[in-house]
Design a protein around this nucleic acid. Structure first.
Lengths: 224, 224
DNA sequence: CGCATAGTTCGTTCCTCATCGAAGCATTCT
DNA sequence: AGAATGCTTCGATGAGGAACGAACTATGCG
């Protein structure tokens, strides 16, 4: 019991699934707001806020207030290094089992991942888009194919608008262990799905439930 | 929520104080038995056993059975590296407060550390023994001084017996942050204290309670 | 000014998990 | 063989803490 620094305190902060997901999301290097982190972690905003204040008190995060936004970021490279070390061990000891979160089930099929669609359907969609050369994939990088503009314009999505965010991004899907489509295009597609009422979001959850006709429409447009 | 390896699972294993203490103790590199680890962690043997099986299942420990002894050790350098990383963050964010274990209080004054005495009294004792040149200290290494044999023989402790364990060892005291005396000599001194009934062990605890006359005797022999 | 968005705080509920005593195996000693 | 040691399993207890809804504060927008 030669106890120096309180390692258990720090480890237990990372030891909660919600907090671990938040830290994981912040490993990208960009600071995120409480709402975004709540979405990432799959918890409600009050819960996320509570976790964030714990992480702050533990010294793992920094906070930058900008107007009504509060951007949380990792406290520094040392914290990032620690998380990498833990991640290394975690994948070394092997993927034991996918720990089911509070709300699982339909989530594996389709769910929201921040602002885009994730889950089996999203993975299948990206596969098909790449197969049809509408999107060009090079490992982690995804670019628009020559027919992309016309293809998406046909369903009312403009891929030429240039926001600060990249149009396409690969996002690793935890349930299928393969990538799905993120970026503004991913976000636009999710918008489309919800606007057309092909699916609805489960209340207070990230799950996305397709109606039978909605599923057919989705398959026709993206999986044909 | 791009969840790859289950980092929360690993971190929560380290996140329990008892388990953290065990892992800390194993950072020395030598494998220890369940009993020793129970003592290190300040928990009962059943509790320790439960923790150890969790750490085993989590892949953080290895087990070597030798007869009726079961030696637990860290699973590898990667695990050790992770613990170091966590420790680094823990001391970077500052020693917030010494989290009091289940049983604190008298523990800071005097307690058992495996098989020898720890706490303020033990630290004072080592200081005095070095001051009197009975023991010679060189940083972490402690050797017997020229007068050691006769000094300890006078109180019935034979320092010439040569077991496999070193006679003297420095052991870092978590409550005072300085070293106290371990090794067979440390163990013999604790035996002496208990045999002479200068002190008694608190039931189901590591605390060691000196009686007033016992304290006087101890001071006379070791602190004069 | 209202109204909407972003976040926190409060209070409650609930579940996990750490803890220990007692009893059960297993191994070694005599 | 019996006794002793080392460790694990079982069962019961209890506390900590994760989760959420509702209410509250703060910033920005029209």
């Amino acid at each position: 019991m030669r106890e120096g620094p309180d390692i258990a305190r720090i480890a237990s902060l990372v030891g909660d699934p919600a907090r671990a997901n938040m830290l994981n999301a912040l490993m990208g290097g960009t600071a995120l707001t409480a709402s975004e982190l709540a979405l990432e972690a799959g918890v409600s905003l009050p819960t996320a806020s509570s976790h964030l204040s714990k992480l702050m008190e533990g010294g793992l995060l920094t906070l930058a207030s900008q107007g009504r936004h509060r951007y949380y970021g990792l406290a520094g490279p040392q914290v990032a290094g620690m998380i990498e070390a833990i991640t290394g061990v975690a994948e070394a000891v092997g993927p034991k089992r996918v720990r089911p979160g509070p709300r699982d089930g339909a989530m594996r099929v389709a769910r929201v991942c921040y602002d885009h669609l994730a889950g089996e359907q999203a993975v299948a969609m990206l596969d098909r888009l790449v197969e049809k050369d509408i999107l060009l994939r090079d490992d982690r990088e995804i670019r628009l194919g020559p027919s992309a503009a016309s293809h998406f314009a046909a369903i009312g999505i403009d891929v030429d608008a240039k926001p600060r965010r990249p149009v396409c991004r690969a996002c690793l899907d935890w349930s299928v262990r393969r990538s799905h489509l993120a970026g503004t295009l991913g976000a636009a597609i999710l918008d489309k799905i919800l606007q057309e009422k092909w699916a609805r979001r489960e209340k207070d959850s990230r799950a996305v439930i397709f109606s039978p006709p909605g599923k057919q429409a989705f398959d026709r447009v993206f999986l044909s």
